[in-house]
Simulated scan of single mutants.
Amino acid sequence: MNWLLVIIGAMAGAPLRYLTDRAVQLRHDSVFPWGTLAVNVTGCLILGLLTGAAASGHASSHLQLLLGTGLCGALTTYSTFSYETLRLTETGAGFYAAANVVASVTAGLGAAFAGVSIAGAVWPG
Rank of each mutant, 00 (worst) to 15 (best):
N2I: 05
L4H: 02
L5T: 01
I7G: 05
I7R: 00
I7K: 02
I8A: 15
A10H: 10
M11C: 15
A12D: 03
P15V: 09
L16A: 15
L16Y: 00
R17I: 10
R17N: 08
L19Y: 14
R22N: 04
V24A: 02
V24W: 03
Q25C: 01
H28G: 00
H28S: 06
S30K: 02
F32S: 06
F32E: 07
P33G: 07
P33W: 06
W34A: 14
T36R: 01
T36P: 00
A38Y: 03
V39P: 01
V39K: 05
N40Q: 11
N40F: 08
N40C: 09
V41T: 15
T42P: 01
C44L: 09
L45V: 04
G48Q: 04
L49T: 00
L50Y: 06
L50K: 02
T51H: 11
G52V: 09
A53I: 05
S56F: 00
G57N: 09
G57E: 12
S61E: 15
H62L: 09
L66C: 10
L67A: 14
G68F: 07
G68H: 05
G68D: 03
A74K: 12
Y78A: 08
S79R: 11
T80K: 11
F81G: 02
Y83H: 14
T85S: 15
L86T: 13
L86F: 14
L88R: 08
E90S: 12
A93C: 08
A93V: 02
G94T: 12
F95W: 15
F95I: 14
Y96G: 11
A97S: 14
A97G: 03
A99H: 07
A99Y: 06
A103I: 15
A103K: 10
S104D: 09
S104E: 06
S104T: 15
S104G: 14
T106D: 01
T106N: 01
T106G: 03
G108K: 13
G108D: 09
L109Y: 14
L109K: 03
L109S: 00
A111S: 09
A111V: 09
A112H: 11
F113T: 02
A114S: 12
V116M: 13
V116R: 08
V116N: 00
S117I: 04
I118H: 00
A119W: 04
G120W: 06
W123S: 04
P124A: 03
G125A: 09
G125N: 01
